[in-house]
Design a protein around this nucleic acid. Structure first.
Length: 741
RNA sequence: GAACUCGUAGCUCAGUUGGUUAGAGCGCCACAUUGACAUUGUGGAGGCCAGAGGUUCGAGUCCUCUCGAGUUCACCA
């Protein structure tokens, strides 16, 4: 043996050895404990198949593999199920950027071609992700690997939609949705971020209809959709303004009459105490309009341009229109003043950071709090009765807060990459209410209402080349994977599911499609381990749909790791240039060092600072393990069977094992790693080996203690411990050995 | 506006459900060492555990308040 441990000489060989022995597969690992074994299962958070792994992935691999190996060694029926995600919008976004670099855009491709291009891209990346996870030493069962777009997973995902639809938990209706005009899709409330900004608050004059010389002043940050407004509102108890209720003013852009109504939502103290109502483009106004049955005129298109209602401004982008409209109003003397230092918060797209446009669109929603079938209340019950326990610094409260304030979930996405919603719209009799875009026989994009298009094209042609479809809320639809077989004509939905709709079912859809019996054997799973940043996106929704589908919460424990930060506690980002690539570190210091550096002294829910110095420190530990093994191997084991100090060493060894077991069972993984490190280095190496040199403890005892340490360290640092174990016991595998008690 | 987290050695962080004298890694100082390991060993300096009150036989740990840092949610015409 060399004086130094060189990871790259061993890691691949050891990993192959484990795989050959089928050590990761619970079906080949029915060992040890005679009779009953307890199941232990983790579903791996499927990495997005769009980018190489980052340090956060290394974190989850390290933590999950540590627990998996620990439980496997304890003799539990252990499954760690790997997979990858198609990651709908994320992937399409990354792919579009790639296209952009090549000077192309998604609009140059029909949906079938685009889908296939992304499919290929994702396959390549998915393979890279799998290779990288293997390099980190993950002992997950690759024979059960699942991909979110596997046929069987897709089928189950659609079945869930159908079932929920039948149960009245899915509805289609016009709601004000968060629409990103750049990404070309709507989002749920979770994908929208807030940004505080300084903006102009315009005080606009609305002339009274009766006496045009007088006017009412209304403050607004968004003057551009004024032409679509038909009402103003005041608070009913506002003494200053209530005499205005029922009066009429002129729309300053269209000169059309507008009525003044009363509603409690108006804050008399804000601005002038009078609000203009833009029901189609503001959440509050939308709600008020519904209450008072006011019309909602659409002023802004899905492309972010003004509609024909805008007259001479039609077709202008929102920002440009604002400038022109304000200028025109000023020349007419209809702007009283402009407050240029007004602070407000706008919603922006979490992907491209553009301002979100609230648009009224017919979309599919999951009803999350239906009175007699509340998904959120069921999840809250699971938390209250500890069916699911959360590890992660106050995150349970945050989860409860989400669950008690959640709005219905918009699951329609206007993107190609994803699982297409199994929905069919009846076209007969609704030709005017359906707008489509399709490729004609010459391959040209053609769009318009179905009524117009059917004058020139057959329904079959349109169906064949269909690119996108938008049906009014009034159009009847059927849910199903294939077109309904009746006398009507149907066109399919072109929207795909929110990516989280499929990942919310992941624990169920994976275990139901791997091996016969897996679902009964491993569901509910033991533990879900992931970053706290996707608690509402993923963990919460897995609870919602998992409980809905099975009656049981999908996991009994949730371990939320913190985000990995740089050595100064700063967030890693490409622009700061402080991103640590885990695979580079694996090449330099070995997988064991990377894993241990991430895990040691980490705490659930608390961010973890990691720098190169930490990897070096843990690389030194691998070397220490290697050299302690060398020392033992150099001894003649027959030489000294017993010595006076053995009893104490054996007792302490047993104490350590049981302490560590307790720590790992209570998921104090960071402490467990710390305790093991300390005991190995400062007790075994510094004391035991030195005592052995003085013949105070026997070689037999020293060797046995080393073996125990290799076992205790194995969950954290699997490669080096396995290498050393095989030097001591060439015929067995450490991964399969029984956890010391 | 609200919730959550954090404040411990020069830096980055632990502190195992309240229990001797508060720990680690890195850094610093001195010394040692040619048969496990310099990716080493021995010894050392360095902390009013943010501050103030409280509970307790006992508080870094539990409670209240203050200050400071960060994250998230909500509202905004």
């Amino acid at each position: 043996m060399q004086t130094r441990y060189i990871p790259e000489e061993h890691e691949q060989k050891i990993y192959d050895l484990w795989q050959q022995a089928q050590a990761f597969n619970p079906d080949h690992n029915k060992q040890k404990k005679n009779g009953k074994t307890k199941p232990f299962s983790i579903i791996m958070p499927p990495p997005n198949a769009n980018d190489p792994l980052h340090i956060g992935h290394a974190m989850f691999v390290a933590l999950e593999d540590t627990l998996t190996r620990f439980h496997r060694m304890r003799g539990d029926d252990t499954l760690w199920l790997p997979g990858t995600d198609h990651a709908g919008i994320e992937t399409q976004f990354v792919f579009e950027k790639k296209l952009q670099k090549q000077g192309k855009s998604r609009f140059q491709f029909d949906r079938k071609t685009l889908y296939q291009m992304i499919w290929q891209y994702v396959q390549d990346n998915s393979n890279t992700a799998v290779d990288q996870i293997k390099k980190l030493g993950a002992s997950c069962d690759w024979s059960r690997f699942k991909f979110m777009l596997d046929d069987d997973v897709v089928r189950l995902t659609k079945e869930t939609f159908t079932k929920m639809h039948e149960d009245g938990l899915i509805y289609r209706d016009i709601r004000l949705v968060n629409y990103c005009t750049k990404c070309g899709t709507s989002y749920s409330e979770l994908e929208v971020q807030s940004l505080e900004q300084t903006t102009n608050l315009y005080y606009v004059r609305y002339p009274l209809l009766d006496s045009p010389k007088e006017h009412i002043v209304v403050a607004t940050t968004r003057p551009e959709p004024i032409f679509a407004d038909t009402h103003l509102a005041v608070h009913p108890k506002d003494k200053k303004h209530r005499q205005l209720i029922g009066k009429q003013v002129c729309n300053p852009l269209t000169q059309k009459p507008m009525s003044i109504i009363a509603d409690e939502f108006v804050d008399p103290k804000f601005g002038t105490g009078i609000v203009k109502l833009t029901p189609a483009h503001d959440a509050n106004d939308f709600a008020v309009a519904q209450k008072h049955k006011l019309p909602a005129h659409i002023a802004i298109t899905r492309e972010g341009k003004l509609t024909e209602l805008a007259g001479k401004y039609a077709g202008l982008k929102v920002a440009e229109a604002r400038i022109q409209i304000v200028a025109d109003l000023q020349t007419q003397g209809l702007i009283e003043k402009i407050d240029t230092s007004y602070k407000n918060t706008v919603k922006i797209c979490y992907k491209c950071s553009r301002v979100i446009e609230p648009l009224p669109l017919p979309q599919f929603f999951v009803s999350v709090n239906k009175p007699n079938n509340s998904l959120t209340k069921a999840a809250l019950r699971a938390l209250a009765n500890k069916e699911t326990k959360i590890y992660g610094a106050g995150r349970e409260k945050i989860l409860k807060h989400w669950l008690t304030n959640l709005h219905d979930w918009n699951i329609s996405r206007q993107i190609v990459w994803g699982i297409r919603m199994p929905v069919w719209y009846q076209t007969d009799g609704y030709e005017a209410a359906i707008t489509v875009s399709f490729l004609n026989k010459k391959g040209e994009y053609t769009s318009g209402t179905l009524g117009e298009l059917l004058k020139k094209y057959s329904i079959a042609t349109i169906k064949k080349g269909l690119q996108s479809l938008l049906a009014d809320a009034s159009v009847p639809y059927q849910v199903g994977d294939t077109a309904p077989s009746n006398s009507h004509n149907y066109l399919p939905e072109t929207d795909t599911f929110d990516t989280w709709f499929s990942s919310a079912q992941w624990p169920v859809t994976t275990l139901k499609t791997t091996k016969q019996g897996d679902f009964a054997r491993f569901y509910p799973t033991t533990l879900m381990e992931t970053g706290y940043d996707i608690l509402p996106f993923w963990v919460m929704r897995m609870m919602l749909l998992g409980i809905y589908l099975t009656g049981k919460s999908p996991f009994s424990e949730v371990y939320l790791h913190g985000l990995v930060r740089d050595s100064h506690g700063k967030k890693m980002s490409k622009s700061k240039g402080n991103v640590v690539n885990p695979l580079d570190m694996v090449e330099k210091y070995g997988a064991d060092a990377v894993r241990m550096a991430l895990v040691i002294r980490s705490t659930p829910g608390i961010d973890k600072s990691v720098g190169e110095r930490d990897f070096i420190a843990m690389r030194n530990l691998t070397n220490k393990i290697w050299n302690a093994t060398r020392y033992v191997l150099l001894q003649d084991r027959e030489d000294s069977p017993t010595a006076p100090g053995d009893v104490v060493v054996e007792k302490k060894r047993a104490q350590l094992s049981s302490k560590l077991t307790k720590l790992l069972l209570t998921r104090k993984i960071g402490v467990a790693a710390d305790v093991t490190y300390d005991a190995f280095w400062h007790w075994f190496c510094d004391d035991c080996i030195e005592s052995h040199k003085k013949a105070e403890i026997s070689t037999t005892c020293l060797s046995a203690t080393l073996q125990t340490f290799l076992q205790l360290l194995h969950p954290f640092m699997p490669f080096v411990t396995e290498v050393c174990w095989r030097e001591l016991c060439p015929d067995s595998l450490l991964i399969n050995s029984a956890w010391p008690t």
